[in-house]
Amino acid sequence: MTLSIKIGKKWAIYSLCIGLASMIFGLLGLTSGLSLAYGVNWSEWGISTVFVYPDIFTGVMMAIIGVIFLLGVRPQWSGKQDAVSFLVVGTLLSALFFGVYLAMMGANAIGYSMYNAIPAGSVYANSVADWEGWIWLNDVHPGIWLFVFVIPGLYLTLKLWRKE
């Protein structure tokens, strides 16, 4: 099929970088999540959760997105136009997850403000106990900030969308 924009080596390299980054952070998160289940605490190594988020599923999802980007690298390098689909879907999924992560952070923020508003001994304290000690940094992880690097992909997607 013919596309109105050239997909070539530049985008292939981009896909490679994003894909690898996603895979790496995903796998790191996955393994640290697993090891946590066995009692090994990564934060003892001084690595903040912002970079290595110790949750199995979050890690798996990032790895999956990484795979999607990586699958597109070779066909994009050889100039196959329809390989842009990997880039587009990877971007869309990243954007979707970004949205969900932000929503989760927002929800926690709401919960935290409720926690602050309720005096310690009241009947209602129980309902908001979960948010004790929450700070927004708790919810920041590669799924969120890697999205910044996905923005070029988003730009390409929008450009293609407009041409449709």
Partner: peptide, 28 residues
């Protein structure tokens, strides 16, 4: 001309990555 649906389906119906993509969406 190319169609957006076909492009998206290249990934979502891909035999390796189609199901993982679904689980990713499901998890989200």
């Amino acid at each position: 001309k190319w169609s957006a649906s076909d492009l998206l389906d290249k990934v979502f119906l891909n035999k390796y990555v189609g199901i993982p993509a679904f689980f990713a969406l499901l998890w989200a």
